[in-house]
């Protein structure tokens, strides 16, 4: 049938379409988009705004035991900053620096309407951490047991290459230590002392930050990430860092 002929046909509208047909059509659409976009289904927007893109997340293997990770239920965050306060207090973070912070922006939801959105950020404890690769003296390293990206302050020469290499702005120079400082999931201050949560996760009144062991099928993080209908994404997947901080809504 030619396009001219098609145009003459009456539009049946979607109301009469059986849901099976609709699903089939959507599946085709997704498959075609997936093929042409090389799998990056939502590459219509810049990668860091992509939500629902599962590229960068490989849910098959967990190289560490425990494999610590954090899930951030982004839409629950109200920017109360209790996480930041707890982090500063627990880890003795100076006022000129931070290990975790909350970003915000206004997104348009109508012609004259905007909605404020918050996003907590911290070290992503990547499986392929660019900071660890570039450090000349192995002052920053991936802990072999937990996968936490840690600092050995005395080895840090202060070249700041890890700061340039980090896709997540997770590092700052600590003047007192004369070394780079960063989030270590409160390993020295809490986890190694038997606590189960990081200070920020424990302090969050809205249960935004879910912390736990991704290799444990009984953990909250495992269950949340594996919910079949849940959309989970990571920040800046295009860098290939394979982060362990996941974002979701609800």
């Amino acid at each position: 049938m030619k396009i001219d002929d098609l145009e003459k046909l009456k539009n049946e509208g979607p109301d009469t379409l059986p849901s099976k047909e609709r699903r089939k059509f959507l599946k085709w659409g997704l498959a075609v988009t997936g093929v042409f976009a090389g799998g990056a289904v939502l590459s219509l927007t810049s990668a860091k705004n992509v939500q629902g893109a599962l590229e960068g997340i490989k849910l098959k293997k967990y190289p560490y035991k425990p494999h610590y990770c954090m899930i951030i239920r982004q839409d629950r965050c109200v920017d109360c900053e209790k996480c930041k306060e707890a982090c500063v207090k627990t880890n003795n973070v100076p006022e000129y620096g931070y290990r975790t912070t909350i970003l915000e922006r206004e997104i348009p939801i109508g012609p004259d309407e905007k909605q404020r959105e918050f996003m907590p950020v911290l070290c992503n404890h990547c499986n392929h951490p660019p900071c660890v690769r570039v450090c000349p003296t192995r002052a920053t390293y991936k802990d072999e047991k937990t996968g936490i990206v840690m600092m050995d302050y005395k080895k840090c020469i202060g070249c700041k290459t890890c700061m340039a290499a980090c896709p997540y702005n997770a590092r700052y120079f600590n003047e007192e230590k004369r070394a780079i400082d960063k989030c270590n999931f409160c390993f020295d201050t809490r986890l190694s002392k038997g606590e189960k949560l990081t200070a920020c996760a424990a302090a969050c009144p809205a249960d935004v930050r879910i912390f736990g062991d991704l290799s444990d099928p009984e953990s909250r993080v495992y269950k949340l990430i594996h919910e079949p209908d849940r959309v989970v994404w990571v920040l800046r997947p295009e860098t290939g860092a394979m982060p362990n901080v996941y974002y979701t809504k609800g």
């Binding site: 000349p136 003296t137 192995r138 020469i157 202060g158 290459t161 070394a179």
Partner: peptide, 26 residues
Amino acid sequence: ELESPWRMLIYNVISPNLTSNIWWMG
């Protein structure tokens, strides 16, 4: 420019990271 260059003299030698371009360059 380095914040703590004296550490480089020690740890570049006893704790080298062969994947680091900074290490190779230095």
